[in-house]
């Protein structure tokens, strides 16, 4: 088997551009997803059962269906209906935001509910208000617990963003496919693209471990 390095060299600028878009889509997805997810998780934890039901329906639908179907529905049905001149990148960001919001909602919920009830009681017994207790005692501990699973969710999102290439968003996977189409070669473009994904994911994993060591592992 001969390995044609020239294909990779020629496509290198496009791979880099694509990798940046991959990161951009994923970062937008995790941030918007975190904001939506925070609201969803409070709905999911509501004391009233009838309020909880729609939120848990939302979470389960998004977690229980393939991202690709979600992407097609958003791109070919949902966005054209509400915002006609949508681009593939918009569709990808919307889909990944919605999808990650469901996972993030559960991460938030686990982070808050995993805290011992004694923490709230100790704070309240000192005379702290509910808001002070949330702010100084509960949220700081919950956030520390959420960082590792949020990091994992972000990594998952980076890999899932490769699906956006299918609807022609010009992210990393898209350029891999383009190179393959042009040269009718599989190994060179896809190995190059796979290695770029690996480098991104490993750097992030390393960064997360560093953050965890610095200030997550106290309890």
């Amino acid at each position: 088997m001969d390995f044609n390095m020239n294909i990779i060299i020629e496509y290198w600028p496009f791979f880099l551009k694509g990798a940046l878009l991959t990161l951009g889509i994923s970062i937008a997805g995790i941030i918007i997803g975190a904001v939506i997810g925070l609201f969803i998780s409070f709905g999911r934890m509501a004391p009233n059962k009838w309020i909880r039901i729609p939120f848990s329906l939302y979470i389960n639908s998004l977690r229980g269906t393939p991202v690709l179907i979600q992407l097609f529905i958003v791109h070919y049905a949902l966005l054209p209906a509400i915002y006609p001149p949508g681009t593939a990148v918009t569709s990808a960001i919307v889909t990944l935001s919605l999808n990650s919001s469901a996972y993030v909602a559960e991460i938030f919920r686990a982070g808050i509910q995993s805290l011992d009830k004694g923490q709230t009681e100790a704070a309240r017994s000192l005379g702290m208000t509910k808001v002070q207790t949330m702010r100084y005692i509960i949220v700081p501990q919950a956030v520390r617990r959420m960082i590792p699973p949020l990091g994992n969710e972000f990594i998952t999102l980076i890999k899932e963003s490769s699906l956006a290439g299918i609807i022609a968003a010009e992210e990393l996977m898209y350029w891999g496919k383009a190179a393959m189409g042009q040269y009718q070669r599989v190994w060179e473009p896809y190995i190059a693209v796979a290695i770029i994904y690996l480098v991104i994911v490993f750097s992030l994993t390393y960064l997360l471990q560093w953050i965890e060591k610095r200030w997550v592992q106290r309890d």
Partner: peptide, 13 residues
């Protein structure tokens, strides 16, 4: 009114 609990409930962070 100070309270001391069986399981301490110190703030670990």
């Amino acid at each position: 009114v100070g309270m001391v609990f069986q399981h301490f409930n110190l703030f670990p962070h």
